[in-house]
Simulated assay, not measured.
Amino acid sequence: MATSKHLALTLSLLLSGSVLASPTFTPTTQLPDGEWIDLSEDLCDVAQQTHSYLAQGNAYDPAAIHGGTTVWLNTPTERIQETLAYICEVVHEDQQMGRTSRLTDPDFIAEHFELLRWSPDQQRASQLSDDKPLLQRLPSDRLLLTKYYVRLTNGQPQQTPETPHALYGLPFDEAHLSLDEADAKRDHITRYRYGKQTIVANESSKDQAAHMRNLAPPLIWLSRDDLEGALLQGTAVVNEPSGDRRYFNVHRNNGIAYDRTQRPEQQQRYWYFKEVQGVLGYGKDANYKIPILPKVTVAGDIFQLGLGRLILLRTEEQGQPVFRLTVLADTGGAFHDNLYQLDWLSGYYRDWDDYYQANRHISDYADAWLLLKKQ
Rank of each mutant, 00 (worst) to 15 (best):
H66W: 00
D61S: 04
A47Q: 09
I80M: 01
Y53S: 05
N74W: 04
C44E: 07
Q56Y: 11
Q48K: 15
T50L: 01
A64V: 03
G57W: 09
Y60C: 09
T75M: 13
W72M: 13
N58H: 14
R79T: 09
T70W: 12
T50N: 04
G57P: 03
A55C: 06
P62A: 03
Q49W: 12
Q81W: 08
A63G: 08
N74D: 14
W72E: 14
T69A: 02
P62C: 02
G67K: 04
I65Q: 02
V46A: 01
G57A: 10
T77P: 00
Y53F: 08
L73I: 06
S52H: 15
G68F: 04
P76K: 11
T77A: 00
A63K: 14
A59I: 13
Y60M: 01
Q48Y: 05
Q56H: 10
I65R: 03
V71K: 15
T69C: 06
G68C: 02
E78L: 12
D45T: 15
Q56F: 11
A63D: 12
N58E: 10
I65H: 04
A59K: 12
D61Q: 05
L54R: 03
T75P: 00
I80H: 00
P76W: 08
Q48M: 10
T70Q: 03
G67P: 01
N74H: 06
C44L: 08
G57N: 03
H51N: 12
G57S: 11
D45A: 13
A55H: 00
H51L: 15
T69E: 01
I80V: 15
I65S: 04
Q48R: 06
T70K: 04
T77I: 08
Q48W: 08
I80P: 03
N58Q: 10
A64Y: 03
A59H: 08
P62T: 01
S52A: 15
T50C: 14
Q56V: 07
Q48D: 04
Q81P: 09
H51C: 08
P62Q: 00
Y60H: 00
P62F: 01
V46S: 09
A59E: 13
A47I: 11
L73G: 07
H66R: 12
W72G: 06
D45E: 13
T70H: 08
Q49S: 14
A55M: 12
G57H: 11
H66T: 09
